[in-house]
């Protein structure tokens, strides 16, 4: 099983690289057919990546989201899923061109981690693990897409309406709304992550909140996105300022995931 997972993962890494090249070719050559091919390739990669995760879970005999490698590959999977949903729902193929490098970066980071399957420590042997980590992955994937959308929003201000970009990127107001929807999805799942984590921590350690660096940075991320949601309600702040907060929010997400494990060890140090 794990051998098969290894093979599928390697194919996925190569596939995401090809996807990124294809998306770059689409925006460079401005050929619509390439965007359709990229969408189909991304759909195929998503199915393949899902199969790899399922095989990993069967091979490891547990939910495959417990170490840096598993979380990173799941993060890339969620980015792929959420971007596919948003590309399809809002008929926005250029989103793929901006999101595929991020997916490639994340799966590249996963490829650099140890893929060894280790036994779980007793505190991780809980049914809450599945809820807690799955919701975190969807939240991170949604925030990743919101980050990409916000970058597109900031980039959109510099382009001409009549050109390729003007035709393929929605109007600022609509773009802002799509980004907002992505943040909403992320915010809901981040709240669920914090809640399920608190319930689990209460069961495992008798403390639902310990100000552990990971918990603290999840709260910081939650607050940054709460500020984003409030800023959008104020005249003059909607748009550019809110987009910058979505960018800062995703930097917090990345710090919570990678930075905290590296620089601020705590009770989440295994994650």
């Amino acid at each position: 099983m794990l051998q098969a997972e290894n093979t599928l993962f390697t194919i996925a890494v190569i596939g995401y690289f090809v996807l990124t090249v294809l998306n770059f070719a689409f925006v460079a050559l401005k050929k619509e057919k390439l965007s359709s091919a990229a969408f189909f390739l991304q759909t195929g990669l998503f199915i393949l990546h899902t199969a790899a995760l399922v095989l990993r879970g069967i091979g490891a005999g547990r939910w495959p989201m417990t170490n840096q490698y598993e979380f990173a590959t799941s993060f890339a999977w969620a980015l792929c899923l959420v971007s596919l949903i948003f590309i399809r729902k809002y008929r926005f193929p250029v989103l793929g061109a901006f999101s595929s490098p991020l997916i490639l970066l994340m799966i590249g980071y996963a490829a650099m981690q140890s893929r060894e399957v280790k036994e779980l420590m007793p505190s991780l042997r809980s049914s809450w693990l599945a809820f807690h980590v799955s919701t975190a992955i969807i939240a991170y994937g949604s925030f990743g897409v919101a980050f990409v959308l916000s970058l597109i929003f900031l980039f959109r201000g510099r382009i001409k309406e009549e050109g390729f970009w003007g035709q393929h990127i929605p109007q600022p107001e609509k773009l802002d709304m799509i980004s907002y929807r992505s943040v909403c999805l992320g915010m809901l799942f981040l709240t669920l992550t914090i809640l399920t984590g608190a319930i689990w921590a209460e069961q495992a350690w008798g403390s639902y909140w310990s100000w552990d660096p990971k918990e603290t940075w999840s709260l910081v991320t939650w607050i940054i996105y709460a500020v984003y949601l409030h800023l959008r309600l104020r005249r003059g702040w909607k748009g550019k300022a809110a987009a910058w907060f979505a960018v800062i929010g995703f930097i917090c997400v990345i710090f919570t995931y990678i930075g905290v494990n590296t620089f601020l060890p705590g009770i989440h140090s295994y994650a």
Partner: peptide, 10 residues
């Protein structure tokens, strides 16, 4: 609050 949390975690 976000700044206070971030600073205190360091």
């Amino acid at each position: 609050l976000a700044a206070a949390c971030a600073m205190s975690s360091a």
